[in-house]
Write a protein that binds this DNA or RNA. Sequence first.
DNA 1: AATTATTGCAACCGGTAGTTGCAATGTCGG
DNA 2: CCGACATTGCAACTACCGGTTGCAATAATT
Lengths: 197, 197
Amino acid sequence: MRTTRRDAGRPRGEPIEHAILTATLDDLAEFGVEGLSIPRVAERASVNKTTIYRRWPTREQLVAAALAATLEQTSADLCDTGSLRGDLLLLMRLVTARLESPTGRALARAAMSEQASASVAAISQDPSVRAQASVLDLVARAAGRGDWDPARSSPDVVLAMLTGSVMHRVLMERLPVTPAWAEGVVEVLLRGLEPRG
Amino acid sequence: MRTTRRDAGRPRGEPIEHAILTATLDDLAEFGVEGLSIPRVAERASVNKTTIYRRWPTREQLVAAALAATLEQTSADLCDTGSLRGDLLLLMRLVTARLESPTGRALARAAMSEQASASVAAISQDPSVRAQASVLDLVARAAGRGDWDPARSSPDVVLAMLTGSVMHRVLMERLPVTPAWAEGVVEVLLRGLEPRG
DNA sequence: AATTATTGCAACCGGTAGTTGCAATGTCGG
DNA sequence: CCGACATTGCAACTACCGGTTGCAATAATT
């Protein structure tokens, strides 16, 4: 009997994988999840389309792989700046940076898409989940300093107001998030959270 | 020479127009702008697809017409409730109602779509423009009552926080906007706007 | 050198968007 | 009432795009 040795033969080229994945991200940023075309990605990556289809049988998996690849290298976490104002401004900058990059916008749109498939939706929401985790630390720090009483205004409300305002600004109004505008948002939040009386 | 009389012949049926436009809105709500299919709309409206193509040569024009048709009948305006809290809560309800209806969601997504064509984008942004106009009245009333100093926190910041928070809640987190949650948002806004010191 | 898997290539299949020519229908003007 | 004319429906067709398959060429591992 002829056993097929799994390790023999020509291995798959990593440069090819890299080219395909980055080409996928480019196409994603330009045409969105709905508009992504595998033949076009193949041309972008200077690779035959069959190669892509063999590695990732469905568009689904390809997109998921590409997104997962990017998310691995995004670890600029929410560190302690010493004050609630500083923490919130940093968070604004993080959210803005993500939403102002073409890829980040595509990701956000994918997450909001009605027919986002399970895996893409999961991956898309991963950063927000991670963000939410860091935000809990932020809240704990603020509560310890006495700047925020979480029992009064819950963290998810505040997170929605912060990220949502940036979404509205960038995605709907298509205006840049200037430092002054970001400070305006944070200012309202700070005053709104300030425990008094 | 034979002049073609423009008024002769069979006129176009308004019921057909209506059927096509509502079918378009349905398809839009179900499949989004990218996924809309004219043959499917035709079947939905019990109309031959050629009829649609003859009236609206491009998809562009069809969706623009359908959106324009809906917007004409949305005039539940932002009336004076007597207090800033009441006005903001009403605004929250208006935004929520829009975003929680399938058609409204499709509209919002269309407005945020990267390759939203000029006409669709213009029409989509029209309601926000109209909303912004009413919001200016709201601000003026609040300023008159001494509840809000617009010089301190500009209306566009507050509007972005309010609508953005609902967008984030509904589109990203896919959670319902409960009265309690809406009140949480308004509460932070009220405290944040309150002029003092 | 032999084996084995990958890659590229070209042709092919299937489905869907959009077009066209024609017959049938309905409405307006005389 | 009748003729003219635009609209609607219908069916066939074209064109394009996504995805598949079979085969030859290539490269790496043993």
